[in-house]
Computed example of a mutant assay.
Amino acid sequence: MADILQSLADGPASRVAWYLVGVGIVGLFGNGMAGQYGDRSAMGVTVLSLAVPPAASLATITLTGRTMLFLIPFAIWGAAGNAGVIANQLRVMNEAPEARAFASALSVTIAQVGIGLGALIGGKVIDAERLAALASANAAIGIAGLAVALLIVVTVRRSKQQVVPAACDP
């Protein structure tokens, strides 16, 4: 995000820092929304948080440097990204109620790995194709995430539908 803002918005580092603080603040809004709706459908919030950021990043990149309106999709990108972390944490904790602390810790670790992989992939895309290609890469990653979410939904539904035979007393 910082590279996008500094390169495309052509702003000084101090302004970029304030933009990133703003993303953190709207991220709190995303956290609150995920907490509110995640109890009803953590997977639904997860899917939404996978679908929204690619479109928001494309709009951010398209509008950055042309108008301050880029801050609107930039804020949406930040809120949706943060909502995804909370939704995943709620989903994992609900799937393992007997080990909520472990599930929560695992979810946080996975989120950190995802952030690191996103930075790594984003850096490689920027180095190879420049910033303009970043939105396409984000879309591809979002589609891959949606495919994984669909796989999880199907797997969980199948496991809940399987009938476990009762133990027979001899």
Rank of each mutant, 00 (worst) to 15 (best):
P54R: 05
A103Q: 05
G22E: 01
F102R: 07
V23P: 00
R91Y: 06
Y37T: 02
E98R: 12
A79G: 03
L106K: 02
Q89F: 00
P12Q: 15
V47A: 11
R66T: 11
A42L: 01
R100S: 05
A80D: 02
G38Y: 00
S159T: 09
K160V: 09
D10Q: 14
R91P: 01
A51E: 02
A83M: 08
F70E: 07
P165H: 09
A75H: 03
G65H: 11
G35Y: 02
I4W: 01
R158I: 15
R40L: 13
E129W: 15
L120V: 08
S159Q: 15
N94A: 11
A101N: 04
Q162F: 14
K160H: 15
A79C: 05
P165G: 07
V163S: 15
L150C: 12
T155Q: 11
N138I: 13
W18P: 06
G84C: 08
F29K: 00
M33E: 05
A59R: 10
F29T: 02
S49Y: 01
Y19I: 10
V153P: 02
I72M: 06
F70Y: 15
F74P: 01
A83N: 04
I121P: 03
L48T: 05
M93R: 04
V125L: 06
W77I: 03
V52W: 02
M93V: 10
S136A: 15
A99R: 07
T46P: 02
A34Q: 05
T67N: 11
R66C: 09
D3R: 09
D39C: 06
G38C: 00
A59N: 07
P53N: 12
Q161P: 14
V163G: 08
G30R: 00
A166D: 13
R158H: 12
D39Q: 14
G116M: 12
A147R: 06
V21H: 04
L131R: 09
A55V: 08
I25D: 05
L5R: 09
F29Y: 02
Q112V: 14
L5K: 11
A119N: 15
S104M: 06
R66Y: 11
A105Y: 04
A135I: 13
T155E: 09
S57L: 11
L90H: 01
L131S: 08
G32D: 00
L69G: 04
L63A: 12
F74N: 04
M1K: 07
V154F: 15
I86S: 00
V153M: 12
L131Q: 12
N31I: 03
L120N: 04
S136Y: 13
S14C: 08
A147I: 14
Q161H: 14
V113C: 06
G114D: 06
G142T: 07
I121C: 08
L106N: 02
L117H: 03
